[in-house]
Nucleic acid binder design. Structure first.
Lengths: 212, 212
DNA sequence: GTCTATAGGCGGATAGAC
DNA sequence: GTCTATCCGCCTATAGAC
């Protein structure tokens, strides 16, 4: 409970620390519902310092969103690069079914990323803010960038890309709802979780029991 | 701007009026970010009256969520009944592909429902509130009820049911982001919107131009 | 059925010290 | 780089009148 001055930390590190805390708070409470003081407390610093560091609450949210999108793009890019290095689709664009493997890999990368509930929920929040000129604009850009990436770099057809994104949005919902916590308690919940997560089952159930 | 007393209205009607206004405000601002005063103003009544009528902000949100889920279940039930009356899948459960038609019909019913942005966004908000004991609980129940409905009454396999829900979650995201407003402006946006909405294209683009 | 008044607490942002 | 103090405004819920 010491209200002593926090350790003096390089600003880059402090930024990352605040962004992580802000992701969680914005995610759980929404952009309007989150307070800079809650974020400050979560980061272990004073409220005015949060504002000073990011200029405004809105700007802080934009940076939280951008950070999430950057992590996502980076993770997908790495996954795609690895897949290509492994000899991927044998040159040109393969026949139907050729894309199963990369779809699986990307799905796995995605689940790993959104295990971080702050990132998951901040993205979900942004997806409902299409009416906000600045936040909605960023969110649309980010979403379309992912679409473009899987179309151009993976070679997904429009249908494949749409299906891939749809499965991602379902993952968001299941985790946002914390449905994995019902695994084994409700027949429907158990079935849809097994059907959705397959390879990641154990990991997802671990998270369901643990944090937040 | 008259601060005169609102017309005296039967409580059932008033309730529905408030629930509609509350859907919009909760949807746009989130549960924590929405204020009972914003809801009251949107409904054209006083703030204390909103609280008096629903007991608390939390209870109001629960009722907003329940109303959205009820509309969804009712719409799906009607759609399924109509499909069965039309001679549906020829008795037993048909082969693969037999479910295309009912999937299309349910998708259409869903898009019609979430044209109401209040309903769309309130549901999306609830999907991120798995950590809230009461709201999260209701949201999980509602989600599982839909799953159960398409499994048991339509006869979808687990895979079909999952795919169906996933496409629904993608619709949520595209509309939440207001991506249809980018139709014709951005190649990726145009492509994913055409791929996703097909039969409902014109309707969705109309909404994109118009309200909220 | 509907309002006004108001209590008591929390919100973001700024000023200025260390 | 980080804090404390503080302004002014908004929030939920209650009390009580009409």
């Amino acid at each position: 409970m010491s209200s002593a001055i926090s350790e003096r930390i390089p600003s880059a590190e402090r930024r990352e620390q605040i962004l992580g805390a802000a992701s969680l708070v914005f995610g759980e409470r929404g952009y309007f519902g989150a307070t800079t003081d809650q974020i400050a407390k979560a980061a272990g610093i004073s409220q005015p310092y949060v504002v000073r560091m990011f200029g405004s609450k809105e700007n802080l949210f934009v940076e939280v969103l951008q950070r999430a999108l950057d992590k996502l793009m980076t993770s997908f890019q790495d996954t795609i690069d690895g897949w290509k290095a492994d000899g991927s689709p044998a040159g040109e664009n393969g026949a139907v079914g050729e894309h199963h493997e990369i779809g699986r890999r990307l799905g796995l990368a995605y689940v790993n990323l959104i295990e971080d509930r702050g990132i998951l929920l901040s993205l979900m929040q942004a997806f409902g803010m299409g009416n906000d000129a600045v936040i909605g604009g960023r969110a649309r850009e980010g979403f379309l960038a992912i679409y473009k990436m899987v179309r151009d770099q993976v070679g997904f057809s429009p249908d494949e890309a749409r299906t891939f994104l749809a499965e991602g949005m379902l993952l968001n919902t299941l985790l946002g709802l914390k449905l994995p916590a019902e695994y084994g308690k409700d027949a429907c919940a158990t079935e849809i979780i097994e059907s959705t997560f397959r390879t990641k089952l154990q990991l997802v159930l671990d998270v369901a029991g643990g944090n937040a």
